[in-house]
Simulated scan of single mutants.
Amino acid sequence: MSRRRRRNTGLKIILFIVIVCVTTGVIYWKMEPVTDKIRNIVNEKSSIPFTENTIEESAVATQYYYQQLSEDEKIVYKEILQGVQEEQGEIYLHTTAADRVGAVYTSVIYDFPELFWCTGEASTTSYNDYSVMQPLYACTGETREQMKAGIEQAADVCISGMDPNAGTYDKVKYIYEYIVNTTDYDINAEYSQNIYSVLVNKVSVCAGYSRTMQYLLQKCGIEGMYVTGVINETMEAHAWNIVNCDGGYYQVDVTWGDPVFLQQEEDTAQPESNINYDYLCCTDSEIYKTHTVDTEVVFPACTSMAYNYYILNGMYYDTFDADICLNAMNDTIYSGGPQTVFKFANDEVYHQAHDMIINDLLQRAAQNLLQNYGLMQTNSSYIDDPQMDKIVIMWSYQ
């Protein structure tokens, strides 16, 4: 019994010495194995190479996708944003939810169209108390800087042609027309998912069109969101925008404004100057005739028609009046205009007008064209769009 007591007493003394060592800072060589173990545990946690985040809240607070995240996800968002800005190969994140890292990264990409070097692809590995994301970059280093310089120069050229005193709608319309007039739709375009394809290469697809629209809007101080969904008829993935125009939200699909895109999709000849304005500042009810938005994020309702292009330009018809429609065609002919556009308020008005315009009024207006220009024959044509309740008459003066 006495031996056991001596062993117990010795244990108490050792524990006391350890306590004294820790509290006084005095280190005894007999305790080194214990203190080394403690030190290794501390170093293991502190060795996770988290980057000190320097992203200010003011830099992200107004970004739409950022606003949809939880507080914990917002921390990860900032870590990812800083990581890809610095081209980090491994980004250490304060989260173990690997399944949410991809969604947060997508939010970053959707909020910042200028991150053209980010493909949006990444692999993520989660550990006990952190995750590591490895993003895939389309370009890095000197190549990225050269491409960035090309983008900024092209953006400056675009904006230099804009009236600095123009209102918000006129700026939106200018950017819409600029992209349509300077870009060709090409499914095989290089860098087609980012703004470089549009601003520098001048060929792209919907992702490039929409991200460029968003990028140029943001450079003009206009809120623009990148929206994803599908085309109803084909269920193919598609991208477009929602724009804040003087406090009201509007749908904008600049890709579908491009006659090159329309010609490829519909396999019908489209005049190069025939920009489609159906998707410039339209409502939800208009765009959802042809588009379906993804449901992961709730977007602002787009219900205002205050900036409907056809209303603003006297091409919108709530009712059908044959004389008014004939006068519209005659006015176009007398002024030498290239086309007369009839945008009807709904299917009912469109069907009331359709046969009369195509089978009667067009012929009468064509006769006026012959007489006014001394032509032997006319070469007018029309585009009939029942889905969007629109008829476009195109006039030839040769």
Results as ranks from 00 to 15, higher is better:
6 R>F: 11
9 T>V: 09
9 T>I: 15
12 K>P: 11
15 L>F: 14
24 T>P: 10
37 K>Y: 10
39 R>M: 15
46 S>A: 12
47 S>W: 00
49 P>F: 02
51 T>Q: 12
60 V>R: 01
63 Q>Y: 12
66 Y>P: 02
67 Q>P: 01
71 E>S: 14
76 V>R: 02
77 Y>V: 00
85 Q>H: 11
94 H>T: 14
95 T>F: 04
100 R>Y: 08
101 V>N: 02
110 Y>C: 06
111 D>H: 08
128 N>I: 14
142 E>N: 14
143 T>L: 13
149 A>M: 10
153 Q>R: 15
160 S>E: 09
165 N>H: 14
168 T>Q: 08
169 Y>G: 00
173 K>I: 03
176 Y>M: 02
177 E>N: 07
200 V>C: 10
205 V>Y: 01
207 A>Y: 11
215 Y>G: 03
217 L>E: 04
220 C>T: 04
253 D>G: 05
254 V>H: 00
266 E>V: 05
268 T>I: 13
281 C>A: 08
293 V>K: 11
298 V>G: 10
299 F>P: 04
302 C>W: 00
305 M>L: 11
308 N>R: 04
315 M>E: 06
319 T>I: 11
321 D>Q: 09
332 T>S: 11
338 P>N: 11
364 R>V: 09
373 Y>R: 02
376 M>F: 15
379 N>E: 13
381 S>E: 09
387 Q>Y: 06
393 I>R: 01
394 M>F: 10
